[in-house]
Design a protein around this nucleic acid. Structure first.
Lengths: 107, 107
DNA sequence: TCGACAGTTAGCTAACTATCAAAATGAGTC
DNA sequence: GACTCATTTTGATAGTTAGCTAACTGTCGA
C-alpha cells in the first residue's frame, strides 16, 4: 500500500503509468517521453515494479512494460472506500460525526 | 498532487487521516495513538498540512486538526478517473487499446 | 564470434526525509 | 509578570531517493 503511494508520488512515474494506460510500451519508448537518462528511467521502472504496478515481458531486444490496472485500482479504490469517498460530491470539512465541537467554519 | 501522494505514502500519516475521519482531534490526542515523539508527529502534521489535507484551529491551549476530505477526494478521485477506474471490477492487464502489439500472453 | 542495440547494475553525489532531544513559542492561569 | 501546558521549531544524525556517468548483460543480425 505504501509502496503504491510512494510510486505515485513522483510525477515521472505517474506519467509513465498514464502512458502505459494507453497500452503496453517498451522501456525505450517510454524513456523517449522524458528528459532523463535511461538509468534514471530504469530506476523509476524498478519502483513501479516494486509497487507491483507494472509487469514486464521481453520481446527480443526490448522489454515491454504492462500496466497492472487491477493493482492500481485495488490500492486506490480500497483507500477511497475506506474514506467513504467516491460517492460524495461536495464535502467541505469533516462529516461532522457525533461528539464534535462546533467551530466557526470560515470557509 | 505529488504532495498528496507523498503524504499518503506514509502509514502513520494515513492512520492520522483515518483517525481524523472520525472527527477533529487535537495534536496531542492524535499523538497518543502513535509510538513516536511529538516533534515527529508534528513533522507528519506539517506534511499533511503541506498537502492541504488538513487544517488547524486553535482551541485554547490545544490545536485541533480537521480533515479536509474534499481535497483528499479531489486528488484521489481525480486520479482514479484519469485511469478510468472506479467502475471497472476485474481488469487483469491493460485494456488492450487499438494500436497494440500483440504478444504471447503467458499469464 | 563480433558489433550494435536495449536495458540494467554499480558507484557516486546532492538533496530530501524521518527521527530524536532540547529549546522556543503561544495561550491560558495565577 | 511569572508559571504551566501543548505544540512547534531547531539542530543533529541516519537512512532514502533522484539523478548522473560508466560499465555490464543479454539479444539480434551478419
Amino acid at each position: 500500500m505504501s509502496s503504491v503511494f510512494k510510486a505515485l508520488s513522483d510525477p515521472t512515474r505517474r506519467r509513465v503509468l498514464q502512458l502505459l494506460r494507453g497500452g503496453p510500451m517498451t522501456a525505450g519508448d517510454l524513456a523517449q517521453h522524458f528528459d532523463v537518462s535511461k538509468p534514471t528511467m530504469s530506476a523509476h521502472f524498478a519502483v513501479l515494479k516494486e509497487a507491483d504496478l507494472v509487469h514486464t515481458e521481453r520481446s527480443g531486444k526490448s522489454i515491454t512494460y504492462y500496466l497492472k490496472l487491477s493493482v492500481l485500482e485495488e490500492a486506490l479504490m480500497g483507500f477511497v472506500h475506506t474514506f467513504g469517498l467516491g460517492s460524495t460530491a461536495e464535502v467541505t470539512s469533516a462529516p461532522v460525526p457525533p461528539g464534535n465541537r462546533k467551530k466557526a467554519t470560515s470557509t
